[in-house]
Amino acid sequence: MPSKEAASDQPAKAELPVGPVLAACLVPGGGHFWLHRWGRGAILLASVGAMFVSGLLMQGRFFQLEPANIVETLGFLGDVCSGLLFVVAKLAGYQTLASASPIADYGTKFLLVAGLLNVLCVLDAYDIAVGNKD
């Protein structure tokens, strides 16, 4: 049976900082705002938001959830990572034009990468919340 001394040597179990992580998932830079990193949060919101809006202006398309098509499904997961930006665009009835163009293809990548960049924002907010970063 381990002694109390040995038990106290073990590192405390880290708690998941739910608030900052959830805020970061919903809004790019939201986790930074939650943690009072106002400047960095504003820069992240502006960058990811501008990338997402650029993708919409380029008439990029959102990937669809198709379990039989792994590429399409992974793209959909990337799009969803934009959080509320994705939800608002969907609820606003955003639809692409039927005609495809190279710029629309760029737009599709912009929308996808905006979601992936938001994943970086979430991880950064987590690191700040648990004390790994300032």
Partner: peptide, 16 residues
């Protein structure tokens, strides 16, 4: 498009 992609991505990479 290239300029915007590089700009937005590098800003996020730099900040995080």
């Amino acid at each position: 498009a290239t300029f915007l992609f590089a700009l937005f991505t590098s800003v996020v990479f730099g900040v995080t």
